[in-house]
């Protein structure tokens, strides 16, 4: 009979445990999934104006709040990928490495989220050309340069499960958008717009969601 005294307390405790357990096994909603805190999105892309550079990149996004995130963007660009020899001028190597950090804000819909981020960082560019015209002396020139890299990124995450499709567009804000009359060059920031596709993964997803 002494134990009966503790029965209400035991029921209360078990109810609380059951309620907590039920809460933990409830399948997360699409919105909750889309707002999952940490995402990693490796991808590949091009600089389409003109289509001459190819790049591999990775975006890491951490949602501090529902509409506020910090974003890291890293890329390796294989510059001038399709024309490595022109008028006896051979490109020995030509690449850029970029690392940017920034803040973003996201809007969510049923199956996707859109993130707009302002990024700033540094870009390292290295290239070497050799003039190898049989009529003249052979001359090489090389450059390695650090430059600021500032821009806006739009990032679409399509899908609400652990793995999702990622699309992003990066619009650099420097160099300043100069127009050019030179038919052979698109310059300024227009030359460094990038379009990228990738596969993203949400880290810390509950088990059973793929």
């Amino acid at each position: 009979m002494k134990l009966l005294k503790y029965l209400p307390l035991a029921v209360l405790l078990m109810s609380a445990v059951t309620a907590y357990a039920q809460d933990r096994t409830t399948k997360p909603t699409a919105k909750q999934l889309a707002q999952q805190q940490l995402t990693i999105e490796p991808g590949i892309g091009i600089n389409p104006m003109p289509i001459s550079d190819m790049l591999v990149s990775n975006v890491v996004q951490y949602n501090i709040k529902k509409r506020l995130s910090v974003v890291s963007y890293s890329s390796y660009t294989f510059n001038n990928a399709f024309k490595r020899t022109f008028n006896n001028i051979h490109t020995n190597y030509n690449y850029s490495l970029s690392q940017k950090l920034g803040v973003g804000t996201s809007v969510y819909s049923k199956h996707m989220s859109h993130t707009f981020a302002l990024l700033a960082g540094v870009k390292y560019t290295a290239f070497k050309e050799t003039l190898d015209n049989p009529e003249f002396e052979k001359v090489s020139a090389s450059v390695s340069s650090f430059s600021p890299d500032l821009g806006l990124m739009y990032n679409l995450k399509l899908g609400t499960k652990k793995y999702f499709f990622s699309y992003r567009m990066y619009l650099p804000l420097n160099p300043y958008p100069f127009k050019t009359r030179d038919i052979n060059a698109i310059d300024g920031n227009l030359a460094y717009i990038s379009l990228e596709l990738g596969l993203g993964i949400r880290l810390g997803m509950p088990s059973g969601v793929k």
Partner: peptide, 18 residues
Amino acid sequence: GELENSGRMQAPYAAFLQ
């Protein structure tokens, strides 16, 4: 320009200057 990396500007410039 240092970042003229279209694969055609730097080497002929260096050759002419030299």
